[in-house]
Design a protein around this nucleic acid. Structure first.
Length: 105
DNA sequence: CGACTGACTCGAT
DNA sequence: TATCGAGCCAGTC
């Protein structure tokens, strides 16, 4: 990603904005790509606090198991608008919609 | 300036 | 197999 990522926030936004439409990532995955493997929580905080979230597909970032953010119910609507399907248990079908960034690279 | 909090994750029971 | 707890550290108030 951007080597000039001064802060985790910068890296996170770069990565999140790079998620293809109709795909989702886990906070931990974003953190790992950003270079902070243990900052899965920070990723969430950044997306939550930073106003740029309006111009960032932060809704494409979910829990590792596909659960959506507890304080971000609209996320489900946004994902649905991108064609992401939800399982009856209220989870994203990670099996099909998790961004296979490892293969994309 | 210092402390609190958390849109998380994984491991252990 | 499911539930519970603790850890991680920077960002925000």
């Amino acid at each position: 990603m951007k080597p000039d990522s001064n802060s985790l926030a910068d890296a996170v936004f770069s990565i999140v904005s790079a998620i293809p439409r109709g795909k989702v990532l886990a906070y931990g995955d974003v953190a790992r790509l950003a270079g902070w493997p243990n900052h899965s929580r920070l990723v969430g905080k950044i997306l939550h606090y930073d106003p740029r979230n309006a111009s960032t597909p932060c809704h494409r970032v979910v829990y590792r198991e596909g659960f959506l953010s507890p304080a971000f119910p609209q996320q489900r609507v946004l994902l649905a608008a991108e064609g992401v399907e939800f399982l009856p248990n209220g989870r994203v079908d990670m099996k099909k919609f998790r961004w296979d960034f490892e293969a994309d690279v």
